Simulated scan of single mutants.
Amino acid sequence: MNTLSSHVLDTTSGKPVEGMALTLTCPDGQIHTGITDADGRFKQWPQSSFEAGTYHLRFHCREYLTNTHGKSFYPHIDIAFELEENGGHYHVPLLISPFGFSSYRGS
């Protein structure tokens, strides 16, 4: 069984990003949306388990970065990743600033 969560942190302010919209596209083409909570986290996807395959997670960051820092080089950030059969919990964090980002498989 696979589960999925995400977390967005602003590396300029050192704070979590509340209210950022997320769009998840599943291997079968289903699309799910969500919004980060006050701690910058999101894990309430409509499906409780995710099959193996390639997923695309879009972070809609322009509005947040423009409102918070006055500029955003990125209108959105797309992260493609693969889930394995019975891979367990997958956590996809995003560290952002107006002109840079990074991500990794978290725990």
Score class of each variant (00 low, 15 high):
52 A>I: 03
53 G>H: 00
53 G>L: 01
54 T>Q: 00
55 Y>N: 00
55 Y>M: 03
55 Y>G: 01
56 H>I: 14
56 H>K: 13
57 L>I: 03
57 L>R: 00
57 L>A: 03
59 F>T: 04
59 F>K: 02
60 H>M: 09
61 C>Q: 00
61 C>S: 03
61 C>L: 02
64 Y>I: 05
67 N>K: 14
68 T>R: 14
68 T>Q: 13
68 T>F: 03
68 T>I: 08
69 H>W: 06
69 H>I: 12
69 H>A: 06
69 H>D: 11
70 G>D: 07
70 G>R: 06
70 G>F: 07
70 G>K: 08
71 K>Q: 15
72 S>E: 12
72 S>C: 12
72 S>L: 10
73 F>A: 12
73 F>K: 14
75 P>G: 06
75 P>H: 11
77 I>W: 04
77 I>E: 05
77 I>Q: 05
79 I>N: 08
81 F>R: 01
82 E>G: 10
83 L>S: 05
84 E>R: 09
84 E>D: 15
84 E>I: 11
85 E>R: 09
85 E>A: 14
86 N>Y: 12
86 N>I: 12
87 G>I: 13
87 G>Y: 10
90 Y>W: 09
90 Y>E: 04
91 H>R: 13
92 V>L: 08
94 L>G: 07
96 I>P: 02
97 S>T: 09
97 S>L: 07
98 P>R: 05
98 P>E: 02
98 P>H: 05
98 P>K: 09
99 F>L: 13
100 G>M: 10
